[in-house]
Design a protein around this nucleic acid. Structure first.
Lengths: 227, 227
DNA sequence: TAGATTGTTAATCGATTAACAATC
DNA sequence: TAGATTGTTAATCGATTAACAATC
């Protein structure tokens, strides 16, 4: 359970809240298009749009409170507000991106941050050819040596790790010392950090390998069927 | 459980195999550097390097078979082979990337595929300014209208979805019809596909929002402590 | 033999699902 | 009132962890 004020929300539920938020926004766009006055949704409609079961959706929402009307459903707009609020998206999170290789650049150029409650306020790297250049949104890439200074100056609250694996651990430690506790990491290493730091690792190569396992399983099943 | 030939491996275990593989390779590099003749590792060393507990590592390995020596540990090289084999990485998986925006480009330019058992064989998009241009590895971007043709010609076995959300569902359906069953998706939608398709969704914005939840929880705890 | 470390068992814990009473 | 749909309970299922016998 993750305690948040009065609330205790299981991690698996927290991980699904963004899906619900996304589905709700899509649903709202749809409702606006249809302009038929319907402003509500049901747990089964929202669950379908989110890719989960309706029982799971209702159970997840129950950890946040009670927002529906029996026999009617949920008001799309107000449920959106509830979930966005639970996710802490009413404040704008100030983001630094560390490491501007392929992926770092793509992340820096992503345009959907502001709509989702985030703002990129700093870019950091060490390569002489990159430091000092202007990247996305007019930000100038600063040297990672100045990490602490930049975190302080820009009130960075989250930092995306997009460095090569070998330097990720050292950078992560400096981030945590500088007060940055929330770290989305694309570096292919298991970071060892103090308990109060929260790391979410995204491993693209790992995802491909998981799919490769399924492909191999399918191949094995097919050849067994042929034998 | 995911049946693979004789094996039945729980999904949670499958998802960790890439971590073990990564840690084993790092360990092997370390061993080569030290050149002290040690060629083994223990479940606790490997677990630490993978960011899991040693009991969990041993349990996970037990689903694949029995590869260690009691009192000694695991041979790094042969355990690497076992896990790579279980993941189906002895065959090269032929990858198409659909959608060459920010993220698609970054994925196309990623250089680590071959080392991990993958090869990018096709790039697809619809934008007139992008189709026909040369991107990573000398590949020419082809039009997504020709998706079925390209899948067939290049024997594509996996396709990375990096398109905008609204077109992802249609593209995914065409991929599955064309015989592509394994789909890593970066599109922010819940894809509705037949059972035999396997989709792994990577949602960067969602990861940030999960961290935002933790930040909000921390803030709530801090203000409670001050009251 | 003594020490180390695996592979497995059994207990615990957490997540999912089905079912339904409450209630609009 | 009848029909619909929530919020919650209880059952099931799966994943994690600790402990230890087996064995090098």
């Amino acid at each position: 359970m993750i305690e948040s004020g009065e609330l205790a929300v299981p991690p698996a539920t927290v991980a699904r809240l963004p899906h619900y938020l996304r589905a709700l926004r899509a649903l709202r766009a749809l409702r606006d298009l249809q302009a038929d006055g319907v402003r509500t949704t049901s747990s089964s409609e929202l669950a379908d749009a989110s890719g989960v079961g309706s029982a799971q959706l209702r159970k997840d929402l129950s950890y946040l409170g009670s927002f529906g009307t029996r026999g009617v459903g949920y008001d799309v707009a107000s449920l959106t507000t509830v979930i966005a609020g639970a996710l802490g998206l009413e404040v704008t999170h100030r983001l630094a991106i560390v490491g501007l290789g392929n992926l770092g650049h793509a992340l820096a150029n992503y345009s959907g941050y502001s709509k989702r409650g985030f703002q990129v306020v700093a870019l950091l790297d060490v390569a002489p050819g990159i430091v000092g250049t202007q990247a996305a949104g007019g930000l100038v890439v600063e040297h990672a040596d100045d990490l602490e200074k930049v975190v302080e100056r820009e009130s960075v609250s989250m930092a995306v790790l997009a460095t090569p694996g070998p330097v990720a651990q050292a950078i992560a430690e400096r981030l945590v010392s500088a007060g940055v506790r929330d770290i989305p990491s694309f570096a292919p290493v298991a970071l060892q950090l103090p308990e109060d730091a929260v790391v979410r690792s995204v491993d693209v190569a790992g995802e491909l390998q998981i799919l490769a396992f399924h492909a191999a399983a399918r191949a094995a099943a097919a050849s067994a069927a042929n034998a």
